[in-house]
Computed example of a mutant assay.
Amino acid sequence: MNKVIKNLSYVFLANISNAISKFLFIILISKFLTNVELGQYTLALAVTAPITLLFNMKLRSYIISEDRVNYIHLKKIRNITNFIAIIIVILVSLTFYKEFFLVFILVAVIKVIEMNSEFYQGFPNKEKIFKTPAKLMFIRTVSITLIFGVYIYETKSLILALIAQCILQFIILLFEKKINMGLVSHKKYIEQKNVKVILLTIIPLGIVQFLMSFSSSIPKYILNNFGDIAVIGIFSGIIYLITIVNLFMSTLNQTLLPYIK
């Protein structure tokens, strides 16, 4: 029981820092830019989140809860879904949001990098190893928040801040992959399981995530059509408090799943 509580504290610290950082992004944009940039950023989140969640397919939870895990197959699925998610975001943004295209693409890339970080966390979490992945998540969160804040303050440019975040987050992902996968043995994850069977399991999970995220973003789509981009920024700053509560709840799921599976 003490071990579970200790693991819970590590994951809680990582998740609370992640939640606070996302709220700080909203504050920083509101403070140093305008409601127009805030609206662009939050609309980009509203559009890209359902798409990336659809292709995320809760792979981390699948890795933890599934006994027969094939790293090679899952890595192949992750790489393909990364590509498809980016392509769909490009098509959607070019069709409906051309004026915000660059913001949408940068936010999508950030989301894809995040879901790859989750993917590599899944393997040590499966072995009930939480301390090191949580520390890496905390370091990543603090680092990208600092660089985002510095670029927003110095350049007053949302685009430059997002580019800096993308570059740093990708570099950190390389370290996360090496360290997290170094905590486990790849040989344990070579059991053969048909890719089709894996997809039949995880695609419904992605669809559920997509529908939940899409339904929560509907007010932003309506405001974009009948209001203006600044109104979306104000609305999103208020409603984001709910997102933070949801991030807190994920702490319990992330820690307890390996024990209750």
Rank of each mutant, 00 (worst) to 15 (best):
R68T: 05
V47R: 03
N15H: 12
T145Y: 01
I80D: 02
E99D: 15
E154V: 00
I139Q: 03
I167E: 00
K156L: 01
I198L: 14
E99P: 07
T34S: 15
L211K: 06
K196R: 10
Q209V: 00
V89R: 05
I179C: 05
S21F: 10
G237K: 11
F175A: 15
K98Y: 12
A44Q: 01
G237E: 07
Q165I: 08
L45H: 02
N2R: 13
M137T: 06
G233S: 08
L162Y: 10
I129H: 09
I218Y: 03
I72Q: 06
L28H: 03
T34A: 07
K178A: 13
Q209I: 00
F148C: 06
I167L: 12
M137I: 03
N125Q: 15
F83P: 00
F123G: 08
T42Q: 14
N79S: 13
K178T: 12
Q254A: 14
T201E: 12
P258S: 11
Y153H: 01
F83I: 13
K187V: 02
M212I: 14
I239P: 00
L200K: 15
L257F: 06
L256P: 06
G237F: 13
F210I: 07
I229L: 05
R78V: 12
N79R: 10
L162V: 07
I77F: 11
N2C: 01
F138W: 07
K135F: 13
L257S: 13
N180F: 04
M249A: 14
F119M: 12
I27Y: 12
T81C: 03
N79A: 14
I80E: 08
M137Y: 05
A46Q: 08
F123T: 07
V245F: 14
V107F: 08
L162T: 06
L33A: 07
G237I: 11
R60E: 15
I238W: 06
V150N: 01
N253T: 15
L45V: 00
N82A: 08
I171T: 11
L174W: 03
N2H: 04
Y221C: 02
L160E: 10
F96Q: 10
F170P: 00
N2G: 10
N35Y: 05
I202S: 13
F235Y: 15
K220S: 11
I242H: 04
A161W: 08
Y10E: 12
P204V: 12
R78Q: 15
L106F: 15
T81H: 08
I84K: 02
L94C: 03
K58S: 14
F96T: 11
I87E: 07
I139R: 01
I144D: 03
S61P: 01
V208E: 13
I86R: 00
V197T: 13
T95S: 14
P50Y: 08
L256K: 06
K261L: 03
S236G: 15
K76G: 06
I64W: 05
I167V: 14
I229Q: 01
L173R: 07
L43T: 04
Y221P: 01
I172M: 08
I86H: 04
L158M: 04
L28F: 14
K177G: 00
S185D: 13
I26L: 15
L24Y: 04
K188C: 02
